[in-house]
Amino acid sequence: MANKTNFVLSFIFLIKLSCSYSQGIEEQRKYCVKNADTFEVSLKKDPTIGGISLLHHADDVYYDLYLDSPDYTLKRNGYSLRFRKRISNENGVSYSFQLKSEMVDLNGVRMEVEESDLSFYKFLQDTSIIHLTDIIDPLFDFADTKIPTIALQKCRETLQEWLIFKSNAPILPFQQLKSLNAVLFNDAMIGSFAPVLVGKSLRSRFHGVIDPEQNDSLYRSTIRNQIAFKELPKKLQENDTLNWIFEASLDKSQFVPLEENPRTIDLIEFEVENKFFIPERGAQLIDSFQKEAETKYNLGPVTKSKYAQAIDILHN
């Protein structure tokens, strides 16, 4: 009877936890990497760490455009707000608008909410109707060119007009900010946000899986991840013997402030994001992975977001 009650309670807990996850909480761990190239080569040579195999599946390019108020209210309050453009061989080009919180501690839980599809957002530039993505594209390009142009300035102004106009619109990052602090993040504050930093990241992506051929005992002792088939990455849809635990990525990023002759900031990070349907079990498996990875590759845990790190470097 007691067992039954415990099971029911833990089931309710899991349901609640999985609900909160789906509403915008991710469990992420970040590590600074001393030498990215050596680390990448090592991963390819010996991809099993702590019983988990890293399956390299994509090399993507990310552009991030961070927004903040002139006095960095978002950063000071532990948030980062960005437009992201992702170029992937697998899925082509996609855009999103994301709000993330800083990690509170090393347990890696972060709030993340996003508008995952910007394709239907349009605005007026002068008298022409223009897609939002066409407004932010030239700003992303600055990460490569680092040359401010008149067209870029025009898009910057249009984006600011969009922010002012949309401050009360049904856009999830804005709704979330108001929910977090309605007084601070009022319409005027959101309307004061402007692009401050743009970055480009080369991201090597890996699925963290338990492969029965590499670790049969762990495979047998771990319940299968209950994820809808369509939610599974393509590679794992094709190979249903692998049990998906987490996603990992190695980012080589360069950030520049949106100004003339910008200073560049280079960051290299390895990230792991829990994807297991029972988050605690996923976290346990990531713990084992982390323990071995720290010893083997001298990885150091990081809590600050790339945005916070870059702004700190710029301000010091």
Binding site: Q23, G24, N168, A169, P170, L172, Q175, Q176, K178, S179
Partner: peptide, 9 residues
């Protein structure tokens, strides 16, 4: 209306 229908908060 749209905020009511879309805001998870």
């Amino acid at each position: 209306t749209c905020n009511l229908l879309t805001d998870p908060n």
